[in-house]
Amino acid sequence: MDSSTWLRVPDVHAFLARAGGFLRSRPALHTVPLTVCEGLRARGPQAYGDEAPVFGVLERGGEVRAAYFRTPPYRLIVTPLTPEEAGALASHLEAAGDPVPGVNADDATAAAFAEAWRARTREEPRLHERLRLYRLGELRWPDPAPEGRARVAEARDRGPVARWYAEFVRDIGGGGAQDPGAWADARIAERRVSLWETPDGVPVSMAALTLPVAGQIRVAHVYTPAGLRGRGYGGAATAHASRAALAEGAAEVLLFADLANPTSNGVYQRVGYRPVTDFAVYDLAGAADG
């Protein structure tokens, strides 16, 4: 008899106390729960929005088998599940009256949960995007490298960093974004944004780093304004951020790329990133993007 039970957990501290060991057992596969929860722990619950985050775990025989969380208004994040576990999670969330605007998980889990939610709501899910998780192998500097240099963003860069964050979110079709100024302020203060600038000192691209947790750091929010693309700036900013992550002591440096964008996937592979696994993001019935 299956003794698995989905349980609600009250806050990020209780969630990490209960599920932290499980999440750290596979840090690459669990990079999103680890990095978002580290951000909540370090920056406070307001770091990802005004509403309280929601957390839960699947326990079997007293051990955590899987976990989920959601920082409203964003989509549900779920660790790998079997179809049966995905169905049980859908039932658990529906019984709790929780809104589920979408789901983000590895390909098989996301599809299984979307189908389980469709079976309960009779509404068709919509595939939002497919992502590939990459892990850095041997870092290779872009060759030829673009003219200019890399540096860490400073307070004087707040304007472009905030603007590029907002443009990045818009370009990926995201909604419910964090306040761009607050996002920039936090990451500039933590020295977690790499910029590539032209020889005359004009920033032209950025790549940010998540906080270190479980031996891994993820490169995120790689962005070059549309009119400046195709010149190698994004690859150079990514390489600089990746080198900074290694210098910080990361055992694994990770990033996600949209599979619909062959250019960015090619850039990341040329600087040394190798595929780990694929993820999928679905919007569910009546959901706003998040």
Results as ranks from 00 to 15, higher is better:
residue 59 E to S: 07
residue 164 W to V: 06
residue 110 A to F: 07
residue 278 D to E: 15
residue 188 I to N: 03
residue 93 L to K: 03
residue 15 F to N: 05
residue 12 V to S: 01
residue 244 A to M: 15
residue 59 E to R: 06
residue 117 W to P: 08
residue 186 A to P: 00
residue 236 A to T: 02
residue 175 G to Y: 15
residue 91 S to W: 05
residue 121 T to D: 09
residue 94 E to K: 15
residue 82 T to K: 01
residue 219 V to D: 03
residue 175 G to A: 15
residue 237 A to N: 07
residue 131 L to E: 10
residue 9 V to G: 01
residue 165 Y to H: 12
residue 169 V to I: 08
residue 286 G to N: 13
residue 45 P to I: 10
residue 19 A to Q: 03
residue 227 G to T: 08
residue 74 Y to L: 08
residue 188 I to H: 02
residue 102 G to V: 12
residue 179 D to K: 09
residue 30 H to L: 05
residue 171 D to G: 07
residue 201 G to E: 04
residue 274 R to Y: 08
residue 38 E to L: 11
residue 206 M to F: 05
residue 81 L to Q: 14
residue 212 P to K: 04
residue 171 D to I: 00
residue 90 A to Q: 10
residue 251 A to K: 15
residue 194 S to W: 07
residue 88 A to W: 03
residue 180 P to N: 06
residue 213 V to T: 11
residue 75 R to L: 14
residue 99 P to Y: 01
residue 256 F to L: 15
residue 286 G to L: 11
residue 269 Q to K: 13
residue 236 A to Q: 12
residue 198 T to E: 09
residue 2 D to F: 06
residue 39 G to V: 02
residue 243 R to C: 07
residue 95 A to E: 13
residue 81 L to D: 10
residue 62 G to I: 10
residue 241 A to E: 02
residue 270 R to C: 00
residue 230 G to R: 11
residue 220 A to F: 10
residue 250 A to N: 10
residue 110 A to M: 11
residue 138 E to F: 03
residue 34 L to S: 07
residue 123 E to Q: 15
residue 259 L to E: 13
residue 246 L to M: 10
residue 211 L to P: 03
residue 224 T to G: 07
residue 139 L to G: 06
residue 153 A to N: 11
residue 11 D to W: 02
residue 281 V to P: 00
residue 248 E to C: 05
residue 83 P to R: 11
residue 65 R to V: 05
residue 25 S to C: 05
residue 172 I to W: 05
residue 67 A to P: 03
residue 24 R to Y: 00
residue 215 G to S: 13
residue 201 G to Q: 09
residue 49 G to C: 10
residue 38 E to I: 01
residue 113 F to H: 04
residue 90 A to V: 13
residue 2 D to K: 11
residue 170 R to I: 02
residue 65 R to H: 05
residue 153 A to T: 04
residue 187 R to E: 03
residue 169 V to G: 00
residue 67 A to Q: 08
residue 178 Q to V: 11
residue 132 R to T: 15
residue 91 S to I: 09
residue 194 S to Y: 03
residue 252 E to R: 13
